[in-house]
């Protein structure tokens, strides 16, 4: 009798936990592939280059990116422990500013890598976290890019991208921590916003430059030691 009840309990608990652990239907690799393909399609659209439709294209890009990337998780991980002491308003503002910064710097650079073959080499899943390993293969180079995902509302969402060992989150954490150690979250927000303004100003500048000195560049990609180029 006791035995029966025990078995019933065990089965019940197992059923419950099975429901709780229910894996999303789409695998992490499929999610990353969908995301990468969607973003490359939008970014390769000539509309992206056209100043008239630029705002619209950027809005489209952002809406698509938010379907696959959980920017709140990206921001939270990049900020680290000080995140817990921030007001929800500050968390929202920081996330919003950070999205804009990433949009202007990293997201827009994707087409430079878009022409290459993307090979999905490996997938590791543990609990609610996963890593998807890809290789961008160029003629003479191979760039290893790792996507880190977490299940959010029963769906895999990207929260970090690691290119050639360099984690986006870790990279920003190293920058944010200094600002937050010396100042307040408001300072960080201000610095991010200033950076965005600077990029926008510089963008206009380089676009006019590109028009005056039109030159075609070979499709050769940067080496893996870009930071040693000087």
């Amino acid at each position: 009798m006791v035995c029966n009840r025990l078995i019933f309990c065990i089965v019940f608990v197992l059923l419950l936990s099975a429901a709780a652990f229910a894996a999303p239907e789409v695998t992490p690799t499929q999610r990353v592939k969908q995301g990468v393909d969607t973003l490359i399609t939008i970014l390769s659209d000539p509309k992206m280059q056209d100043p008239a439709g630029h705002d619209e294209a950027v809005a489209e890009l952002r809406a698509a990116a938010e379907k696959f990337i959980d920017f709140r998780l990206v921001t939270m991980s990049s900020v680290g422990r000080p995140w817990l002491e921030m007001s929800p308003k500050m968390q929202d503002d920081l996330t919003e500013a950070f999205i804009k910064l990433l949009e202007r710097s990293y997201l827009k650079k994707i087409p430079a890598y878009g022409g290459q073959d993307v090979e999905y080499t490996k997938e590791l899943v543990q609990g609610t976290k996963a890593k998807v390993f890809t290789e961008l293969v160029d003629k003479d180079k191979k760039i290893v890019v790792e996507f880190r995902l977490k299940t959010v509302d029963n769906q895999w969402m990207i929260y970090d991208v690691v290119a050639e060992g360099v984690s986006l989150v870790s990279n920003y954490r190293s920058q944010f921590s200094q600002v937050l150690a010396d100042g307040t979250p408001e300072d960080l927000l201000k610095i991010i916003r200033e950076r965005i303004e600077k990029i926008d100003a510089g963008q206009a500048e380089s676009e006019t430059q590109a028009e005056s000195g039109a030159q075609t560049e070979s499709g050769t990609q940067a080496g893996s030691q870009g930071e040693q180029k000087q």
Partner: peptide, 25 residues
């Protein structure tokens, strides 16, 4: 040969602290 899609520029353009970003990378 690396004027476009250059890692140094991608990294430093989006950085709020270039020095820390490059050191970390």
């Amino acid at each position: 040969l690396e004027l476009k899609g250059n890692e140094y520029e991608t990294l430093t353009e989006g950085a709020i602290d270039k020095y820390a970003a490059v050191r970390n990378a």
